[in-house]
């Protein structure tokens, strides 16, 4: 395994795309953590200066102001916190629920696996966003409920992924021999199966974060996300619609922010795939 690892690591470091992805995500984390320091007007998350409404970018408000006269740059920086929270918690809990279910079903097979496949079929039969909209609307608009809606609709995906991986691993010699040696199922699953499917999970997590941010932003855009004046990016775009085409910066700024972060996760995911999972390399091995 080692030479492959080393090769992968080298490739990961030298891959400009992955490096860019990592840089974008670092920028997101820095923005989120240091928002109160970086923001020129940290109070503008909730404060208004109605006389300054809809100012184009200038020396004071670098990215312009919004419909309440708040500084867009400051709001975008604080919005990074919300984006990170939603992505990490929603995907994290979907993984925490989906992976064990997929492991157990894949390991034992039989009726539990059939049940799992059918239940996840039900969830996967409808676009995630439709179920998420319905749930978010039911629970009422708030960040917590967006996260809940996204995790409820996203876990089956992980269960399916882990299920398939586990099934194909189960017939491998080293798993069979572990079972033959009398290892408990729990031990086999956590010590033998899980480490071998971890790379697939990590790669999908990175890409899934990007997708989740897009879905969360769409919920915000429809007015089902965090209530005002929360600086949630999707909601900001929805607010800006009324002022197009004159206030072009208003819609542009949050849109670019979403784009860069999702791009970051996707590039990182691609890079990780090359690094961790050389079986399914991008571009099928031609470099």
């Amino acid at each position: 395994m080692m030479p492959g690892w080393r090769r992968g690591l080298g490739r990961f470091a030298s891959d400009r795309a992955s490096a860019l992805g990592l840089a974008l995500l670092l920028a997101l984390v820095v923005a989120a953590v240091f928002a109160p320091i970086l923001a020129p007007f940290p109070g503008d998350v909730a404060d208004f200066h109605t006389a300054n409404r809809l100012r184009p970018p200038d020396a004071v408000n670098w990215l312009g102001t919004d419909r309440m006269g708040s500084d867009l740059l400051s709001r975008i920086l604080f919005g990074a916190r919300i984006t990170i929270t939603i992505a990490v918690v929603a995907v994290g809990s979907a993984v925490l629920v989906g992976v064990p279910i997929g492991l157990v079903a894949g390991y034992y097979g039989g009726w539990p696996s059939n049940l799992l496949m059918r239940v996840s079929d039900v969830f996967l039969a409808v676009p995630q966003i439709v179920l998420a909209i319905a749930i978010a609307q039911t629970l009422g608009p708030s960040i917590e409920n967006v996260i809940l809606a996204l995790s409820i609709t996203y876990w089956p995906f992980w269960a399916r992924l882990v299920f398939a991986e586990t099934r194909s691993l189960k017939n491998e010699v080293f798993i069979e021999s572990a079972i033959a040696l009398g290892a408990s199922p729990l031990r086999v699953m956590t010590l033998h199966v899980l480490p071998n499917i971890a790379s697939a999970i990590i790669v999908r997590t990175s890409i899934g974060m990007g997708g989740t941010i897009l879905t969360a932003a769409a919920l915000g855009f429809l007015g089902l996300g965090a209530p005002p004046p929360t600086p949630e990016w999707g909601r900001m775009i929805a607010e800006s619609r009324e002022f197009l085409p004159e206030a072009w910066w208003y819609a542009t700024v949050p849109g670019v922010a979403i784009f860069m972060v999702v791009m970051g996760f996707n590039l990182l995911g691609d890079g990780l795939r090359d690094f961790l999972d050389p079986r399914i390399r991008r571009g099928a091995g031609v470099k």
Binding site: G210, A218, G234, G255, V262
Partner: peptide, 11 residues
């Protein structure tokens, strides 16, 4: 093509 997947449809 990477960008195409990162762009929010509504945006």
């Amino acid at each position: 093509s990477v960008s195409g997947l990162a762009i929010a449809a509504f945006w």
